[in-house]
Amino acid sequence: MRYWLFKSEPHKWSFDHQKKAGDKGQEWDGVRNYQARNFMREMAVGDRGFFYHSNEGKAVVGIVEVIATAHPDSTADDPKWECVDLKAVMDVPRPVTLDEIKAEPALKDMVLVNNSRLSVQPVGDAEFAKVCEMGNLDPKTAMKG
């Protein structure tokens, strides 16, 4: 299993919206960046990720799971754009802000710290566990697939 981070502006698609989508989940559509798209192509069903509110809040607020591998994005006119489907798994009890992540020495190499504009990005196992701990979430619970 691999771990990821998915960024969304909460006024467009928030973690509350994701939770309301239920077990059927939702396409992670609208990504028009080749690197982010390529990361989605690497994902497998069962991979987990952080749901990150960008612009407003700038914090990890939830855990999501990949429920469908990369497929054509239904919002794109060009078939080169693909997306995965995600479902909400759990809230992060205490949102972990970007400032907190940047201040944590163990997370200095995290993609979010070094390329905060990328909307879909990998997260290392130790990074995933550390952010969970910072959010008062048991990493073992969050990391189960």
Rank of each mutant, 00 (worst) to 15 (best):
M1E: 08
M1D: 08
R2Q: 15
R2D: 15
R2N: 15
L5Y: 02
F6Y: 11
E9F: 01
H11V: 13
K12A: 15
W13K: 11
F15S: 11
F15L: 11
D16H: 13
D16S: 12
Q18E: 09
Q18T: 09
K20A: 15
D23E: 14
K24N: 06
Q26I: 07
E27K: 06
W28V: 01
D29C: 04
D29E: 13
R32A: 01
R32E: 03
N33W: 03
Q35K: 13
Q35A: 13
Q35C: 04
F39A: 12
F39V: 12
M40T: 06
M40D: 08
R41V: 02
M43V: 02
G46P: 06
D47Q: 04
G49C: 01
Y52P: 01
Y52S: 01
S54Q: 00
S54D: 03
N55C: 11
N55G: 00
G57Q: 00
K58F: 02
K58V: 06
A59E: 15
V61A: 08
E65P: 04
E65L: 09
E65I: 03
V66K: 01
V66C: 12
V66L: 05
I67H: 07
I67G: 01
I67K: 12
A70S: 13
A70C: 04
H71W: 00
H71R: 10
A76V: 01
D77R: 12
D77N: 13
D78M: 09
D78A: 09
P79C: 09
P79M: 10
W81R: 06
W81D: 07
W81I: 03
E82H: 13
E82Q: 14
C83N: 11
C83Q: 10
V84R: 03
V84M: 07
D85Y: 05
L86G: 09
V89H: 11
P93S: 04
P93R: 03
P93Y: 00
R94S: 14
R94F: 03
T97K: 04
L98K: 07
D99F: 04
E100N: 07
I101L: 05
I101A: 00
A106P: 06
K108G: 05
K108M: 08
D109T: 15
M110A: 14
M110V: 05
V113Y: 10
V113F: 07
N114T: 08
N115E: 11
N115C: 11
L118G: 08
L118H: 04
S119T: 11
S119R: 07
Q121I: 02
Q121N: 10
D125L: 14
D125N: 13
A126F: 09
F128Q: 10
A129Y: 11
K130R: 15
G135D: 08
N136I: 05
D138Q: 09
D138Y: 02
T141W: 00
A142Q: 00
A142G: 04
M143G: 09
M143Y: 10
K144H: 10
G145C: 07
